[in-house]
Design a protein around this nucleic acid. Sequence first.
DNA 1: CGCCGCTTTGATGGAGATCAACCTTCGTGG
DNA 2: CCACGAAGGTTGATCTCCATCAAAGCGGCG
Lengths: 246, 246
Amino acid sequence: MSQALIRKLQNFVKLSAAEQRAIERAGSERVRRIGAHEDILREGDKPNGALLIVDGWACRYKYLEDGRRQIVGFSVPGDICDLNVFLLKEMDHSIGSLTEVVVADLSRETLEGLMSGSTRIAHALWWDNLVANAIQREWTINLGQRDAVERMSHLFCELFLRQKSAGRAQGNSCDFPPTQAELGDATGLSTVHVNRTLQQMRSADLITLQNKRLVINDIDALMRQAMFNPSYLHLDRDGAHLDAND
Amino acid sequence: MSQALIRKLQNFVKLSAAEQRAIERAGSERVRRIGAHEDILREGDKPNGALLIVDGWACRYKYLEDGRRQIVGFSVPGDICDLNVFLLKEMDHSIGSLTEVVVADLSRETLEGLMSGSTRIAHALWWDNLVANAIQREWTINLGQRDAVERMSHLFCELFLRQKSAGRAQGNSCDFPPTQAELGDATGLSTVHVNRTLQQMRSADLITLQNKRLVINDIDALMRQAMFNPSYLHLDRDGAHLDAND
DNA sequence: CGCCGCTTTGATGGAGATCAACCTTCGTGG
DNA sequence: CCACGAAGGTTGATCTCCATCAAAGCGGCG
């Protein structure tokens, strides 16, 4: 159930078999299935614990008063939404499903149990949280400085590598369910311009995007195009000195 | 020394006198003074602990390969930069001073001591961290959806309220040291357009900005203009049920 | 005084928004 | 099994916000 999370965390530190089982158990306690295009958590809701995305894609988003919408991040299998958010009275943004989604609710007690039971798990979860913040900063940079092609390219690089790090990519391809309108809400571009940008990228033979599947024809070219530097994802085992040895 | 931090944290939970002293002590252990326009921490550096901004303004930023720069956040007195960042091998962005700055280095041990000594402090620091993430999300929205006037207005609202919450505003005015070029790097606008946007805002009688001082003539009008909703700053004492009673 | 960092102004150009159709795909029900 | 409708994708024409380029003010300080 929580294989993706475990795989991802091991990019930081190797977990013991017992620790993996503990995460496995936490992630299978309260599992729900949610239809496509539903809200999982809404701005203003009281959060109880964290959400683990087990399968499918979700996004965090927020509407402005006048109806404009910005997607501030995508959540893919293995992602934890808002560790610690139960400290707050209410959600300041919404989380909605893009596809059918399987989530596990991680209660406050479950999380505290995991973290106090193993400092290695605690550190791994904090690492994941730091990476999530770094991703958010990178989105700020993306929207502030990059033009349409660079922006889309960067987004594709991010989501391919994130899925790969969780064992969710196949060769040079991965799931990619967002519609062009959703890509527009994420990149701050109009749907029309997203469409034209994708055509440009296709004709430059950077990517293929169809049937909710992304194929990256030339990852180096795509990364160059995006000026993508993967170091912000911190996938190079920063916690190796804390590895479990079983 | 750390009055601003203590003031700010009390927007979440009331701290006991002993807890305030503990923070005070932590924030006065290793204090340094840094000149204006210097790097405090550079991308690639190994982080040891967190930084507390005691006085002056700093910013987090990152360059793209081709020299474009994006400022991803401003740090004002009372702000902690990257709690827990010592888990990472290297910084994925830089922190630079805008003005002369006084910082306190909070070592990993100091932080762990503070947090294990008082769960109330631990929660308050996590709250601060959650708010920092929310601010980063809001920047994403700002750059993705708002036009120039709305964007600048939103930035002014944010920084006024943040300083106010740390006891650093005076009436309807506060420090505001960034140059127009720096505002451009933060908002993704050119310097020229920042200038024209400010003129527009001045002539609409929203703000006065001179001598590194921001005066907000009509906060309601400014917030309306920006479609600013302060709830993401979580200043309404979400931890009140955990208040100390002395 | 003269220089340097910052702000301001004017003129021109371009990336991307907006508007308005039209097309394609696919699920649903008659 | 085809009709139809809705959701998503594509195209063309026009407009606008903001970038860019270039130069000129302005104030503070050595």
